[in-house]
Amino acid sequence: MVPVQWYLLLAAVLFGVGLVGVLIKRNALIVMMCIELMLNAANLTFLAFARQQGNIGGHAIAFFVIAVAAAEAAVGLAIVIAIYRTTGSVNVDDVRELREEG
């Protein structure tokens, strides 16, 4: 039997790696991939506690997290495409203006 804290430690490592990626990467697409990693870490925590408590509710929440992550990816990537069309770049540092120049 694998102890529950192994799963929680794995989720913490996964979340930390995703957090570091969000903070240091400048490419908006890779930032979104790191957000997906963090969502998956949260999912792993839900499932670990669901298994530890014997409660099926954690699986339902994980299901909703997957659905929300899919919606987030679709809308986020659409925004990345719109930003690329406007500024010609997906660097998050280049997106700092609310209005057009001039």
Partner: peptide, 24 residues
């Protein structure tokens, strides 16, 4: 990010040590 990760790891290893898995 690394500091937050380390704090999280330390907290987990202290708080949930010895928790048993339920029989399902």
């Amino acid at each position: 990010g690394g500091g937050g990760l380390m704090a999280l790891l330390a907290w987990i290893s202290r708080e949930v040590a010895g928790a048993e898995m339920a029989a399902v």
